[in-house]
Design a protein around this nucleic acid. Structure first.
Ligand SMILES: [Mn+2]
Ligand SMILES: [Mn+2]
Ligand SMILES: [Zn+2]
Ligand SMILES: [Zn+2]
Lengths: 150, 150
DNA sequence: AATTATATTGGACTAAATCCTATGTGTCAA
DNA sequence: TTGACACATAGGATTTAGTCCAATATAATT
């Protein structure tokens, strides 16, 4: 078992390498944003990350958070998750996995499934398009939203 | 083979029945929006539909188009397609099918695939959530965006 | 044709995201 | 270690998407 500390350090090293390889300087803002995203499992929006960082970093700007999250996406440090309009949601989990999204509260939940992972891209699609992501997307009501009201 | 006219009439009947069953009156605006959506295969946003209808219907409001598309979704006449932030995209195709989305130009393309259709919802997910939609989501670069620039 | 509940309009408002430019700071080479 | 510079950020302005609201219009029913 890998210790938490090592996981954490590995994450930071990955981040620093990715920045260096892409000619991006390593700023306190980028570090804070990376840490916040990496330690999150709720597929946060830029605004959510912004508010969390603001708790201890009193003048980081929302623009920087937005710009940086998009940069992370470009250099492969983060993914942008499928939503339905509404704010963009970011994902630090780069491994192949799948999503359930609650149409009521917007919660996005990861899950793993070997059969889903094994799906092949249809020939006709492969010929025509360059595929970068393949995910199964489930939608419905989560455990919290399913019962009382709606 | 069903004639175009019949398909069209069936669509309109379906629309009218859905409205009646839900206590919604059949207004010229709703008819125009339904026709425009039903005859589209590009998964249009509200703004796109609004602009098309404006070409011949000179004072329909954007608010009505937005509100109506959401209503259509509620009463099962349309689906809201998975995107990545950015404007909501609507889908008149109620049949089980799957999507490719170009990350550059935003184009969303339908495709059918029996293996994808046959995917089962994992036990653990079924127990916890109420599933309403199941789709495979592919992402990448479309035929137009793949080549020259990047 | 009159009634009434529902729907639409258009402008105001809110929220998300991007743009702009003056200021600040990581990085690298001396 | 310092200095120079290219790159990055802050914060305010702007753009864009979506919603709200109150006055007006109209579909459905009688
Ligand atoms: Mn995820
Ligand atoms: Mn579709
Ligand atoms: Zn929920
Ligand atoms: Zn494209």
């Amino acid at each position: 078992m890998v210790s938490k500390v090592n996981e954490y350090e590995n994450g930071l090293h990955h981040f620093e390498n990715a920045c260096r390889q892409n000619g991006l300087s390593i700023t306190p803002q980028r570090i804070a944003i990376f840490k916040e995203l990496a330690s999150s499992s709720e597929h946060p929006s830029a605004a959510v990350i912004f508010r969390k960082i603001r708790e201890y970093y009193d003048n980081i700007s929302l623009d920087t958070v937005n710009r940086t999250l998009l940069t992370f996406h470009e250099i492969g440090l983060a993914k942008v998750v499928e939503s339905s309009g509404d704010p963009k949601r970011f994902d630090p989990n780069l491994a192949l996995h799948h999503h359930f999204r609650c149409v009521k509260c917007g919660k996005i939940v990861d899950f793993e499934n070997a059969a889903y992972d094994a799906l092949e891209i249809p020939r006709a699609i492969q010929k025509k398009f360059v595929i970068r992501e393949k995910r199964v997307h489930l939608e419905g009501f989560c455990d919290t939203c399913r019962s009382p009201d709606g």
